[in-house]
Design a protein around this nucleic acid. Structure first.
Length: 561
DNA sequence: TTTACATGCCAC
DNA sequence: AAACGTGGCATGTAAA
């Protein structure tokens, strides 16, 4: 059963049941939308699929009201997938835009969503109309009409089964994203502060350098012979020339090659300055919401970091985030991620995901045989007769399109041993070099290069052609890996035991998920993760011999994994 | 003063 | 080992 739903902006909303794409029965209005959705979700039998304009606009309010849904169809995300498939990347994707296109009307721009929207604690009462429909349009009718059109477009795609799976898991990902932002990653501000103080010295007044950074800057000045601002690449360039070691840039890997006493000081400064500016005290104040656990009022201060995920925000289908840098939490501060009292963190990450994906999609028997192992690279090394590290470099080179360095002979060996796998990425690269588009396993489509004829006619045309070839080469693997992760998230939502408020999947980054669970549910949750992995593999690739082993750890602290 | 771009490093 | 794929973001610098 599908149910189209449109919030009214006052806590209520209108609903209408659908059979396939067509409405059955009348539209009806309810005063308390969350209560009604919760009631229907509680009914026995096949769960409904909720049809709505945008999960990130509709679902946060439901979650805040304590309601979770199992399935949805996100019209906006689906529209983006369909537009991409039709080589129309970047066109507006909102419900209103899709409706306008269907009616040959002027297509409105997409609304801009600011950082933090949808994750803030303040109820927004189903945020006013974000669908950009013209005034006077019946939003429910428009939603139903656009949804029906999308179903038809999916059915007309080259592989409707795969594309509709893509639509379903993209939508499930949107549900998971809202839930993760709501529950938040448990983050101890006191521990974070202790980590910073140990490394940088005590918190300085705003705008000043922490003690350790100030000392390093002073010593750099002494060694060079005059004051240098290590934060200024231009000053560092001049300083290096002044001490007799001119460099083309101040990148750390360039400086590392220079034998001069100022270099270790500069490298140390860069490392610590990065920590201070990106994840220091001001980050902590901005992004970690302090809270007291009502059940443990005398316990340690706890907090929550709530990433604001942008589902499908990367062309490859990976997620992006708005604000807070959730996808780049440095290892140095992961010790601040601590389970609440009585709870545990379960981290599951997919090892060597991309070469395994390549083995599965290409159908290369030799690579699949290696990918049936726990350590794919070790088996690869045995195949190519080299050490594990170099075998790994060779594989990554094939997927990233690296040609320089000593990867070339290794690549030749791999072309011979894994002809279908290498052929798969090589073909994608050739398509890209010709300005073409490629698709992931489920049909996510790479954006076509704009003004290709003009681009390749330019002086650096050849360089750009090859760069686009590297992009499409990587796209077919990275985008399919992102699909694997989406299916895993969807499977995990389905398989996980029900959790108390604040628990569940709390963090996701490319090939890794973190769950925050009551101690007594940890074992059951680990079993659910294994079921989800198996389900993911068969859903995507059927009876492939390729395995996707998950490294699962159960701890009280993210840094211990 | 604001804006746009360049630089550099973090993550996967 | 070298600088190759996807991003976010802070900071410095120059242009507007």
């Amino acid at each position: 059963m599908r149910i189209a739903v449109v919030p009214d902006g006052e806590g209520g909303g209108r609903l209408r049941e659908l059979d396939g794409g067509a409405p059955v029965g009348p539209a009806r209005h309810v005063d308390d939308l969350a209560a009604e959705v919760g009631r229907i979700e509680g009914e026995a039998g096949e769960p409904p699929r909720w049809i709505w304009a945008a999960t990130e606009d509709v679902y946060p309010e439901l979650v805040r009201a304590g309601v979770r849904v199992r399935r949805c169809h996100d019209v906006e995300l689906t529209e983006a997938l369909l537009l991409g498939h039709a080589a129309r990347h970047g066109e507006p994707r909102s419900l209103g835009a899709a409706w306008a296109r269907a009616h040959d009307l002027a297509v409105p721009d997409d609304p801009v969503r600011r950082s933090g929207e949808g994750t803030t604690a303040q109820p927004t009462l189903f945020e006013a109309d974000r669908s950009t429909l013209p005034p006077g349009t019946d939003r429910l009718d428009a939603l139903i009409e656009v949804h029906r059109g999308q179903r038809e477009r999916v059915a007309e795609s080259p592989d409707p089964a795969r594309f509709s799976l893509l639509v379903a898991v993209e939508s499930a990902g949107a549900l998971a994203a809202v839930e993760m932002s709501h529950d938040g990653l448990p983050w101890r501000p006191d521990v974070h502060d202790r980590i910073l103080t140990e490394i940088l010295g005590p918190r300085p007044p705003a705008g000043q350098r922490p003690r350790v950074l100030a000392e390093l800057a002073a010593r750099i000045g002494e060694v060079v012979g005059h004051e240098v601002n290590p934060d200024s690449p231009a000053q560092v360039l001049r300083a290096m020339a002044w001490v007799g070691h001119p460099v083309e840039s101040t990148r750390s890997w360039v400086l590392e090659r220079i034998d001069h006493p100022v270099v270790p000081l500069l490298l140390r400064y860069k490392e610590l300055a990065r920590l201070h500016s990106a994840n220091g005290w001001s980050w902590l104040e901005t992004w970690v919401e302090e809270r007291r656990d009502p059940e443990h009022p005398d316990g340690p201060r706890t907090g929550r970091f709530r990433p604001d995920y942008v589902v499908g925000g990367v062309v490859s289908g990976r997620w992006a985030t708005r604000g807070g840098g959730a996808l780049q939490i440095p290892k140095a501060v992961r010790g601040a991620v601590r389970a609440d009292p009585g709870r545990l963190l379960i981290r599951a990450d997919a090892g060597q995901l991309e070469p395994r994906v390549l083995a599965a999609v290409s159908g290369d028997r030799a690579l699949a045989e290696a990918a049936a192992e726990e350590d794919l690279y070790a088996r690869l090394a045995a195949h190519v007769g080299d050490d594990r590290e170099r075998a790994k470099i060779g594989m990554l080179s094939a997927m990233y399109g690296q040609t320089s360095g000593d990867a070339a002979p290794l690549l030749a060996t791999m072309r011979r041993l894994y002809p279908r796998a290498l052929g798969y990425v090589d073909a994608a690269a050739r398509t890209g070099e010709g300005g073409g588009i490629v698709r992931s396993w489920l049909g996510r489509t790479s954006p076509a290069p704009s003004d290709w004829t003009a681009t390749i006619a330019r002086a650096d045309g050849e360089r750009r052609r090859r760069a686009h070839g590297r992009f499409t080469r990587n796209f077919v693997v990275q985008a399919t890996a992102a699909e694997w992760a989406l299916v895993l998230l969807a499977s995990l939502r389905q398989e996980s035991p029900s959790m108390p408020e604040g628990c569940g999947i709390v963090f996701f980054v490319h090939d890794e998920v973190v769950l925050h669970v009551p101690e007594e549910l940890a074992e059951e949750t680990v079993r659910a993760i294994h079921r989800a992995e198996a389900l993911t593999r068969t859903t995507l690739f059927g009876d492939t011999p390729v395995r996707f082993p998950l490294d699962i750890s159960v701890t009280d602290c993210y840094a211990k994994t």
